[in-house]
Amino acid sequence: MTDEMYDEEGGPVKKFLYLNRKAPYGTIYALESLEVVLIGAAFEQDVSLLFMDDGIFQLKKGQDTKGIGMKNFSPTYRALEMYDVEKLYVDKKSMDERGLSADDLVVPVEILDAAQVADLMEDQDVILSF
């Protein structure tokens, strides 16, 4: 890379994008993606999360998993701030398609249109898709 950045200890800092396109509970991808984000936070990289398609449903307010015998991990998204993971983005088209607005989500997010999504992706060094 031409414009490589370094953290305080001199290690390289890369831009990591976690792309989440799958709904929670039906498959494990959403939960295990979140586990990568939490572990990855310790590496002090420049992290962004983008929720697209059914991945938006990961952030839906009011999840109650008592009836399916699984752990409700949606409160963890609210804890991301404590890990300095603060760049949370959602795709506008996915929100519109699902009749969701920012008020329906458990965390504050920035809503991006298609061109902004393309810019965000282009701006990354590493894109982890789940």
Binding site: L19, R21, M121, Q124, D125, V126, I127, S129, F130
Partner: peptide, 8 residues
């Protein structure tokens, strides 16, 4: 290409 993105 500068990065690879998988659309799964």
């Amino acid at each position: 290409h500068s990065k690879v993105q998988a659309w799964l």
